[in-house]
Design a protein around this nucleic acid. Structure first.
Length: 206
DNA sequence: TGCCAGGCCCTCTTTAGGGCCTT
């Protein structure tokens, strides 16, 4: 069964194009619904963390003093991910930092990202919120440690992804949910999704 | 506290505007 890499970054801000940097990365490798490996590291990008981010993540400037250099971490993370397709919650955000940090160390950008948030908006339009924690609560899934830490968030996104795979199998009778299907589903237009659901599913599309 | 950016989505739309989500 092909591997999928669920990734999450903690960063100094929202935009790498404005100079924000990654300060922590975590990757959870899934084989089907089984976690087969994990990667997690703080990243010293020689950039001060705003107080707001320290409060949000619990990652302090002091913690990064002894952290490995960002370029070294990204080389290790890239080797860890290998050719596995990537999944993230609000993947546009993590993709921007993944690409920016890889460019900094001269590594190739080639990974396709699937997004659990976009897929969840399609599959669970009735959910009160499509934030990661809210979706985990909505499904009654276990929370994995402190929110806004990379490994905990990556674990929760992986758990959500497994829920999505379960629902695709149970409600849509798709036994071989994969990255390509997620990519298609997250880009599926609403009218097309209605047709798709009417054909395959018992869940109504609002 | 809320803004900062970017991508996506929805609608009172498409020659636009605003909300959601990520840190």
């Amino acid at each position: 069964m092909p591997l999928v890499a669920v990734i999450d970054f903690e960063t100094t801000g929202l935009s790498p194009t404005r100079g924000d940097r990654a300060i922590e990365i975590a990757v959870v490798l899934l084989e089907g619904k089984r976690v087969v490996d994990r990667f997690q590291s703080l990243m010293n990008a020689s950039q001060r963390i705003p107080a707001f981010i320290e409060a949000l993540t619990g990652i302090t400037n002091n913690m990064l003093i002894s952290a490995p250099q960002a370029d070294s971490v990204m080389r290790d993370a890239s080797r860890f991910v290998g050719s596995a397709p990537l999944v993230a919650h609000n993947a546009a955000f993590d993709r921007a930092f993944w690409n920016a940090e890889l460019i900094r160390v001269g590594l190739e950008i080639s990974h396709m990202f699937a997004c659990t948030m976009l897929v969840s908006r399609r599959l669970y339009p009735q959910a009160p919120s499509h934030k990661l924690g809210a979706l985990v609560d909505y499904h009654g899934l276990p929370r994995a440690g402190r929110a806004h830490r990379a490994l905990a968030d990556a674990e929760m996104a992986a758990t959500l992804l497994c829920q999505i795979f379960d629902d695709l199998r149970n409600y849509y009778h798709i036994d071989h949910a994969n990255h390509a299907l997620l990519m298609a589903l997250q880009r599926c237009s609403k009218p097309l999704l209605r047709v798709w659901m009417a054909k395959h599913a018992s869940i109504a599309c609002q």
